[in-house]
Design a binder for these strands. Structure first.
Length: 385
DNA sequence: ATGATTTGACCCTG
DNA sequence: CAGGGTCAAATCAT
């Protein structure tokens, strides 16, 4: 198992190296593809050894499907291996999260090159602040244990179904502070040219429901809720406010998980059952990271790399990491983009299942992932679809 | 006509 | 009572 972990670590290391060299390799698709293949190969090797290990200790080995590691039903026969796999899973989770953070960072870096320089803070535990501003940092060092030094607002509120904007009684229900609701604080740079008033956009559609002058702040705070709140009881909300000392930077506070499971367009899928996805997931992971660099509606990305968040969206545990697309959300200019969501475990699965070294870079990874998603439906352990 | 935004009022918490 | 979050009617945009 130690060797396998080393292999996976190596794979992550290669991925990071690839990431850091990405700017240099951007115009060298062959090299890029080769590097991707190397990463895939390492992970694949790790996976194969993993299944050997699993197969030798368990009769329920499920070759070719990493997901079984993560979602196996309780089985006394595999109790011992489960311990190892549990630790591996834990490690993998953090690694995947880190890797995805790095991808997000790259995306943000790309966005920075285009127009903006967003950074993300996410407070630890209930109210994480992920600092994705630092480029290509490790993983753990990005997780701050305390609130940002300058956080606008900061209340923690519960989100109950009855509070999702659907008044159930004449008496409006109010949230309580510090009730443990997770929130994600994201700093997003406003465009330095053009209209700096444009609020940061992300991959979801938001409907503004209020604006408030905040005491001691030069700029008002805007309140948004998910457009599909009514139809899908989506409790997601966000607050947007500009910094006093840096008008070019917005602080966006996301609260509540998106249950609409879609992005900026009308849902193509039936609404998920009213299940709190945080109930059965790691609290730490049950955190929405909704990061999408606001894009000037007039600017069109010259190209889309696999790192483009248009191509990935991850759910980590109960939380969701959503890579943003190019679609304006709250504005009426209105082009919209559907983003897909890939559970981290699915991604890992795809990575581990990614085939030969002749595969075409990461595209294969996602295609493979899509296939796996179909298979996972059979297992009944997939996320809400 | 429909949906989003604006904005003053309302309500709750500290 | 002040401040912040939300509501909802009016208004605006498509």
């Amino acid at each position: 198992m130690e060797e396998i972990v080393s292999l996976i670590l190596l794979g992550c290391k290669l991925a990071r190296e690839l990431e850091s060299n990405l700017p240099n390799l951007a115009d060298q698709p062959n090299l890029l593809s080769k590097s991707c293949d190397e990463v895939i190969k390492v992970f694949r090797t790790a996976k194969e050894r993993l299944y050997k290990t699993q197969g030798s200790t368990s009769t329920s080995a499920h070759p070719g499907h990493m997901m079984t590691l993560f979602h196996e039903p309780q089985d006394s026969l595999v109790q011992q291996p489960r311990i190892e796999f549990a630790s591996l899973q834990q490690w993998l989770r953090s690694s995947c999260t880190q890797a995805m953070d790095n991808i997000i960072q790259m995306q943000l870096l790309q966005a920075d090159h285009q127009r903006i320089s967003p950074s993300v803070d996410m407070q630890d535990s209930g109210s994480k602040v992920i600092n994705v501003a630092g480029l290509c940092t490790g993983g753990s060092d990005r997780v701050e244990g305390s609130a940002p030094s300058r956080s606008i607002g900061g209340e923690l509120h519960p989100l109950h179904a009855s509070e999702s904007g659907i008044a159930s009684s004449s008496q409006r229900q109010r949230r309580r502070k510090d009730d443990g609701e997770r929130r994600t604080v994201i700093k997003v740079a406003a465009p330095r040219v053009g209209n700096t008033e444009i609020p940061p956009e992300d991959d979801f559609t938001w409907r503004k429901y209020g604006q408030k002058e905040i005491l001691g702040s030069r700029f008002p705070r805007s309140y948004y809720r998910c457009t599909h709140q009514k139809l899908y009881q989506c409790p997601a909300k966000k607050q947007v406010q500009r910094f006093d000392d840096d008008p070019y930077t917005y602080e966006v506070i996301y609260r509540g998980d998106h249950t609409c499971h879609m992005s900026s367009t009308a849902p193509s899928l039936p609404p998920p059952p009213p299940v709190d996805i945080t109930d059965h997931n790691d609290h730490e992971m049950a955190q929405i990271i909704n990061i999408q660099p606001p894009q000037d509606s007039s600017s069109v990305p010259s190209s889309r790399s696999w790192l483009s968040t248009e191509y990935f969206s991850l759910r980590t545990g109960g939380g969701t990491i959503v890579g943003g697309g190019a679609g304006p959300s709250t504005t009426r200019s209105g082009k919209e983009l559907v983003a897909v969501e890939y559970p981290v475990t699915d991604l890992a699965d795809a990575m581990f299942n990614s085939g030969s070294s002749s595969s075409n870079s990461i595209d294969f990874l996602f295609h493979s992932n899509e296939l796996n998603r179909g298979q996972q439906g059979d297992n009944g352990n997939n996320t809400v679809d």
